[in-house]
Design a protein around this nucleic acid. Sequence first.
DNA 1: TTGTATGCGTTATCAG
DNA 2: CTGATAACGCATACAA
Lengths: 349, 349
Amino acid sequence: MSTHRRPTIRDVAELAGVSMATVSNVVHGHAHVREGTRQRVFDAIEKLGYRASRAAKSLPAGRTFMLAYCLPGDTAPNSALDVFLHQVVSTASDADLELLLFAQKRADRVQPYAELLRGGGADGFVLSEIEYEDKRVAYLKERNIPFACFGRVDDPAVHWVDVDGASGIRAAVEHVYLQGHQRLAFVGWPNGSPTGDDRLLGFTEETESLGLEPQSVVRVINDFDAGRKAVPNLMDGSDPTAIVCVSDTVALGVMAGLRDIGAAPGADVAVTGFDDIPAASLTAPGLTSLRQPMDQVGALLVQRLVAQLIGQSAPNSILVQPDLIVRESTTGNGAASAEPEPHTRERNL
Amino acid sequence: MSTHRRPTIRDVAELAGVSMATVSNVVHGHAHVREGTRQRVFDAIEKLGYRASRAAKSLPAGRTFMLAYCLPGDTAPNSALDVFLHQVVSTASDADLELLLFAQKRADRVQPYAELLRGGGADGFVLSEIEYEDKRVAYLKERNIPFACFGRVDDPAVHWVDVDGASGIRAAVEHVYLQGHQRLAFVGWPNGSPTGDDRLLGFTEETESLGLEPQSVVRVINDFDAGRKAVPNLMDGSDPTAIVCVSDTVALGVMAGLRDIGAAPGADVAVTGFDDIPAASLTAPGLTSLRQPMDQVGALLVQRLVAQLIGQSAPNSILVQPDLIVRESTTGNGAASAEPEPHTRERNL
DNA sequence: TTGTATGCGTTATCAG
DNA sequence: CTGATAACGCATACAA
């Protein structure tokens, strides 16, 4: 029928035959309350289905009991967002915090934060897609607003969690090396992205540490076609037998590029990616990749944030390790098993 | 330095030399205010960067100025969520509404809604993953709480937006038919999912309407391997030349299954999917699919919701059309161009 | 046209 | 141990 008015603390108090203050005390365990009244209050709460209204709590407390997260802007469709958000929401919920979502409409990365803050805001922010000299970090830090970053920040006072991309790529390099590959190549992103630079670093470090000659590196934007078109350049001189890529999207492009020039990815040339997007396991051959533990990251971020909110100290920066997922693109048997016979019939070309 | 206290309506009033009520009137355009004072108030607001606090507004208004959305539970990683949420958030923002995210922890689909509602809640809900006889729909409707569903509901009073899956599949069937295919098969989901049933309906309708014999149909869960394993059954008797699938995930599995038995998807057997997940364009051959206009859906849902909130009538149900994206899996030239030479060298097998 | 006073639901302070 | 009361920031009758 009609929307039943939500029960207030006064309703509970009347039903239990006590004052509002006593109800509040019972709920928060503040003062010592006689067991008898305590029980009556709990019964009334149960019976009425009472729960303190967020808005009413907010007002005197000066807090919102909400965390906020700004959706990444014009980036590519992000399947990891799903599990990330899930974990953020449910970890926040464990601390009785809710998650407010907002988005940026213009190019200005800071404006939406400022806007939200002016309107009552949130108790803390989860930031992702951190860039060098991130304006948002500066803005929030200056105002003493609690936040935690998914992505490293070069400031010991800032709380952040990041995936160890360098270590991930090192694992990939080691993996293909153990498969017998000596001539590797790296397809990276353009200079200037913390994540991209970090992953490239892992490649350089590990190939050096293995005593390999300097290996060829090309840089492309994070795009299937860009990866595809990079292959001819790559196979120009050094003829690598394994291509380590900065991302799955690029790696899948590279695989297509290899086919373009008549090479079988996985069989002729090993390929690795990063991120373990769904497509990595949905293609033949499957793409060896590095899975980011987005659930861990989400949980840790919120835990860091909560620690700040309750004024509890804790380590400021955490590096989590990605998991190497080995598939046929580096073992060669996938392409074979998926295509037991050569394609002989072709149409339309 | 320290967090500057947010300016209140009182600060604005003092600076402008008027009362709080006047400020409120100016902001809401309620009463007629003399142009001079109006300007002074606006100046003060501008200067102070004032914006009414959400919590303080909420209390007397009995509204939260927030919409809420419950993240889908244990479903597969959903890259469409990204653009969907983006659109929901930004459309809501156009109506000065924010989006609260929550999640369900247990099997009970209703409990998180009840919980949120008890704690102050939200002004309206966006629901997705609608099932037959959806408990949440019943719960919210019973309590007169505004909501809008992504997914059809068999109740003329309920506001919903859905993608026309039947029509999408009809387009796919027509497309492969025009490519010369007469023996089709459909790989669907198990009975009981509104979306799956709808898509199957489109297949049945269109093949009938084209005057084709009843075509074979198999049902599998929405899983790559399930699709892959379905192929042998499919090729048992009728030997279809085109396989229409209920989803991209299944379709990609089917393509792998075809390779398993030595058939080249795209060249030997046409395959279509649904959803246009990123993987559809990241494989060779590319997968012909149907793209759901998630941005449209998100915007329409919020618009429906807002219409309810301001008591404005509007059509309750909207069916949006998916777009057929034709790729090489139904034209045959993709596999060819991507693999100009047969794979002759194979390792490890 | 503008100002004053009250209430929204909660928590915290202070008496009893 | 328990109850009254002020305050949080805002909107809205109502008064001037």
